[in-house]
Every structure is written in structure tokens, then in C-alpha cells.
Design a protein around this nucleic acid. Structure first.
Lengths: 197, 197
DNA sequence: CTACAATGTAGTCGCTGACCACAATGATGT
DNA sequence: ACATCATTGTGGTCAGCGACTACATTGTAG
């Protein structure tokens, strides 16, 4: 058991990793800076050098969360088949899966009580949203969707998928209903947006 | 300044009222049992006679919130015109208005980390959902919507509206976009569900 | 009128986040 | 090489909190 040198070296990263784990396993209420410090083996004041206060740590977690969510949705879309409906369904499913596996993190990401200066966070959210946007634009190019402001259509799609995720997290939508509601959402979205041929 | 008798008489109700106010104005993090007791003028231990712990108070707030939300949506629907689209729009708008005015409360209601025994809470949520359900059934009766399991259709509608509310609360949907996205959601929902005539 | 239940009080405990002065280390410029 | 300064970690302190307890007061039912 090697003794850690006086300087940890990557305390910030270690804090974020431990925090994400605690967030997932025990929820945001049980996330304590002092407990994290204990787990990592530094003094209770050390985290303050990297995060001005508890909220700053939560903000950083949310920021990283957006990056991961965007990546996972994009990967799912890319791995899906060629048909627009398949890709749409893959995106929705990936989003909801993230939400169920990291419910507390998603809540944090959309908590909206972040710091004022956090245009950073808004930008991160934007990157997640842009995955949806690209999907819409592809759909329109393929004429699976009628023309129209992609922002507007994408936002509605985003809201629907996010709503399904939120209701699932809160237990209103049961795991058994999940496939069904995602299928319905995609099908109806397409039917309501089909390009007049 | 009359001195309160030893027994407050309606401390439970007073706590809930003060708590809802604090929740709205300062958020759930700033809601402290001790602070509530101070505001009301009882000792810091008194609230415990009415709520076993902090979470029990939050659960009670959520319970009342569902009743109020259901009532407000129902009132909005009843006050709306005769057309199904108008009623649908009114319901969505009322839901989102509730969400923006009592964001922290809505979050609490859907937090999903409630007590196990709280079938009470699930029942309360059910009553909110039933408003949506009735609306769907009306729409189907009027043949504005195709036939189909109302539960299934209603859940998707619920999810969409809730998603719009959540994105608004978190600042992703701006107030200026709100009318637009509600309109889009209703219109697309109808287009995607119109009974084949 | 007397027990007993319900409700409020006062004190305590451990934990937390925030803050501070200080110590150890790393980096930089000459 | 060395002095200087910024960065990072330590240990102590403070007030606030939720939870718990023993006890006091009040309402109520037999």
C-alpha cells in the first residue's frame, strides 16, 4: 500500500469519478463532499481547491453528463439501420436508457438551478440537442419528414423523449410499458410529420 | 400580539402552507424543518409530531400538489371551448403553467424517491393522469382521435406535455418558444392520431 | 376527576458545507 | 542552483441541519 504523495495529482478527476458513482448508487442527497474526500483519502477541505462549493461539483457532473449522453445517443443512431424510423427509435431508446441508468444525473443536468455563468452548461446541453437536430435534418433530406424549421421539430421530439424518460424514472411508466410507449411515440411522430408525398 | 396557546391547533396545515411557499420561492434545498418551525413560532422539534422526517413532509407536499395540478388542468379543460383541439391545448397550457409556477413542487411530485408505502402518492398521480385519460376518451368519442387503448395514447400525451414542462423549467425551452411548442405538440398529436375518416 | 393520548419544548448528537490559517509541494524566472 | 510565488492539501472551527430523547403541557375519554 503505497502512501500517496502530499499532492494527489488528479484529485479533481478522482472526485468526479467517485461522485458520479455515488450519484448513481445513492442519489444526489447522499452525495457529500466530506464523504468523497474520505473515500479518496484526502482531508475534508481538499475538494474545495477544485470546486468552490458543492453546487460547483454538481455542475461539473452535469456538464460531463451532457457530453456522455450526447455521445451515447449518437453512437446508438450510428449503429442503427439505415431507415429513419430505426434511427429515431434507437435515439429515443438510448436517451431513455441513459435516464434509467443515471436518473439522478439526468435530473441534475436538467435541474436548471445552475450558476449564472454556466453558459458552459447550456453549450453542453446544446451538443446533446444537436444530435436530435441532425437526425431531423437527415429525415427531412430523406423526405421521411415534411420540411420545416428543424429546431422547432427537434425541440418537440426532444421534449417527448425527455418526457418519456422522466415518467419512467418516476415510476409512472413501468419498464414493461417502455418499449410500447417508445414505439408509439416514434410512430406517431412520423405519422404526424410525414412529408406529403 | 396574542400569545399562541401551548398547542398550535393546526400545526400540520401551517407547516404545509409555509413549506409550499418556501418551496416555490427558495427551492427544495432551502426548505428546512427548523426554519419552518421558526417562521411559525414553535420549537424546532414540534414538526416531528406531524411528519416523521423531512421526506414525509415532502411527500405530503407532493400529494397535495397532485390534487391541485389535477384540479387546475381539469378546470382549464372545462373552461375551454367545445373543440377537442382547444381542450387539448388548454390542458397542456395549464400543465405547463403549473410547472413553471411551481417548478420545485412538480419536481418533487415526480421525484420517484418516495416512501415504499406511498401507494397514496401513486393514487394521487393517477388522479392527475385520469384528467388526461378522460380527455382522450372524449376525443375518441368525438372521432377526433382514432380508436385505441386510451391508457396508451394518454400516457404518450402525458409524457409529451410533461417533457415540455420539464424542458421549460430547465431553461431549454424559453418562454418565447412555449406557445409555439405547445401548438406544435397538439397539432402533431392530432395529425398523428386523427381517426381515419 | 383521573388516567391516557396527543402535542409542544429543550437539550443533545453526529454530520455537513463553508471558511480560515498554515504546511507542503510544484513551477518559474534569473 | 536557488529564491520566489502559485497551487494544492491539512487541520481546526463555526453555524445549521435532521434525528432523537426526556420531559412538560394540554386535550379527551372513561
Amino acid at each position: 500500500m503505497t502512501i500517496r504523495p502530499y499532492h494527489h495529482g488528479s484529485l479533481r478527476a478522482a472526485l468526479l469519478i467517485a461522485a458520479e458513482r455515488t450519484l448513481r448508487e445513492r442519489g444526489v442527497d447522499q452525495l457529500s463532499l466530506r464523504e468523497l474526500a474520505r473515500q479518496i483519502g484526502v482531508s475534508h477541505g481538499a475538494p474545495r481547491r477544485h470546486f468552490a462549493d458543492r453546487q460547483a461539483l454538481l455542475d461539473a457532473l452535469a456538464f460531463d453528463g451532457f457530453a456522455r449522453l450526447g455521445g451515447e445517443v449518437r453512437a446508438a443512431v450510428d449503429a442503427a439501420g439505415d431507415s429513419f424510423e430505426q434511427r429515431l427509435r434507437a435515439a429515443a431508446a438510448a436517451y431513455v436508457r441513459f435516464a434509467t441508468e443515471d436518473a439522478a444525473l439526468l435530473e441534475l443536468m436538467f435541474a436548471g438551478k445552475h450558476r449564472e455563468e454556466s453558459g458552459r452548461l447550456a453549450a453542453a446541453a446544446e451538443r446533446t440537442f444537436s444530435v436530435m437536430l441532425e437526425l431531423i435534418e437527415q429525415g427531412q433530406a430523406e423526405e421521411a419528414l415534411e420540411a420545416g424549421d428543424p429546431e422547432r421539430v427537434g425541440l418537440l421530439l426532444f421534449a417527448t423523449v425527455h418526457g418519456i424518460a422522466a415518467l419512467t424514472t418516476s415510476g409512472i411508466v413501468t419498464p414493461e410499458q417502455l418499449d410500447e410507449i417508445i414505439t408509439d411515440a416514434v410512430a406517431r411522430f412520423l405519422r404526424g410529420s410525414r412529408a406529403a408525398v
